[in-house]
Design a protein around this nucleic acid. Structure first.
Lengths: 254, 254
DNA sequence: AATTTAATTTGGTATATACCAAGCGGTATG
DNA sequence: CATACCGCTTGGTATATACCAAATTAAATT
């Protein structure tokens, strides 16, 4: 077999790496390997399917992209656990969302500082309706579920609405703190969800590999008086979380 | 330079492919290459950064994962266009969502058949509340915007609610057809959004490469009487679309 | 039996190379 | 000017190989 010719093998012109991926996926979906179970190594798959190790890697990479498996550096490749649901239709915070699914939430403050609005990105400043010299709290946290890193949050709050926010305990729900300490009750969220990828810095802060699939959520929160109280850019693990939206038709529609 | 040793080069132990990706990303973000503009080829990048072509590919793959570039087979790699917003908070159909953004929507029926519910997946049958022998319409369509493929939809409708649905013109809004012809008015949606990957079959139907980032939306639609009228599994291009959710706090929250 | 050390396995990074098919641009011809 | 053909470029698929560091397992020692 000459190099590069295998693309014509496998019946129907299916590249070798896709054929191998399909067969491994079938094993997983058949329950032969359960959640958390070990998938054969790259070298094992190469021998088993008569392909090169690099081709076996491409097969595993494809399964990873599909969310069927996750790779742990130097340990092996394992079948992914079921995903955690995050409800987009609710203003409930991340912590309460996890608790509802019996998952123990955690949060760790990575950075907490107060800066003039000129130092945050223009969209953030505009969304919060703050002028360039106005103070803004910047809070960066990692979020975990049952000790496993799930998200990296970067939130911005206008300091004039919650002056000493960063002096409080911020390892729980920030929305609770805003509510109880400042009378700021999140009442309306706008959230944009898109596919993206971690850069090295974010991967390090979150404590996961840089090539984990990521969903970015850009969020603006308003209180009942329609004051903008938070602008956030969050990075969620697409391999562990699924977003759910429940929508009702209002009388304006149709 | 020995093979495999470059991982220690580049200052601070940054792998070569990540360094190159960072520099190309900087060029894109600086506006040196605008939307639709051509990114240097793998071979050009290899020469420019003194790396192997395979390493240059890894760099481009990383940029692709971040949604900054898109690759067109044998043509080159280009900076991605701005993304189209899809509103999760509305029951408006895909077509009207595109029209609101000045984009010309299109739809093409790929498959249309009526089968007993035993032949669709169990979750679909359960969501629609149909028994195994009950007839279900299966409609598979590709959706385009300005002629460009954007989504592959697979929808299921209980035939008893819309008996001759598949005989109608289904190249426009199906929700309009349900409304006007059967008095079925979609009033409530539940949509789950997650990261996934196209298989070869879906890639072919949609007419895009199999490794385009994909967001899968699993949807159930109910009418005003709370009858389930649609179960759908849609595949949207994550490189071209962004999902937006607007959320109001109801009086129950608290 | 528990702990420590050594050996093996594993994914990660990287190079070099080969071949293919599709896309695009340039050139020649009518 | 329009069309057809050709050559070059490009990403896609694949092999072989090297080396590294982290994780796991096996073996040795206490």
């Amino acid at each position: 077999m000459e190099r590069g010719m295998a693309a014509t093998e496998g019946g129907g012109g299916v590249p070798a790496y896709r054929g191998a991926a399909r067969e491994v996926a079938a094993r997983i979906l058949a329950g032969d390997i359960g959640p958390g179970g070990r998938v054969p190594s790259e070298r094992e798959l190469a021998v088993e399917y008569g392909i090169s190790r690099m081709t076996a890697r491409s097969a595993i990479r494809l399964l990873e992209k599909r969310g069927l498996v996750e790779r742990r550096g130097r340990s092996g490749t394992f079948v992914s656990a079921p995903k955690i649901e995050i409800d987009l239709s609710s203003v409930a915070g991340f912590s309460s969302r996890l608790l509802r699914q019996g998952i123990s939430p955690g949060a760790e403050v990575v950075e907490a500082r107060t800066v003039p609005a000129s130092e945050i990105d223009a969209r953030g400043a505009e969304s919060l309706g703050v002028s360039a010299d106005e103070a803004v709290h910047v809070l960066v946290r990692t979020r975990t579920g049952n000790g496993e890193p799930l998200a990296l949050e970067e939130s911005h709050f206008p300091a004039r609405l919650c002056p000493d926010l960063l002096e409080r305990d911020l390892t729980g729900s920030v929305y609770d703190v805003l509510r109880e300490s400042y009378g700021l009750d999140p009442a309306h969220l706008r959230q944009e969800v898109e596919v993206t990828q971690l850069d090295t810095d974010a991967a390090e802060k979150l404590g996961v590999r840089a090539d984990v699939p990521i969903l970015r959520v850009v969020r603006v929160a308003w209180d009942a008086e329609r004051r903008p109280i938070e602008f956030a850019r969050d990075l969620y693990r697409g391999d562990r979380l699924i977003f759910v939206s429940d929508t009702e038709q209002t009388s304006e529609e149709g």
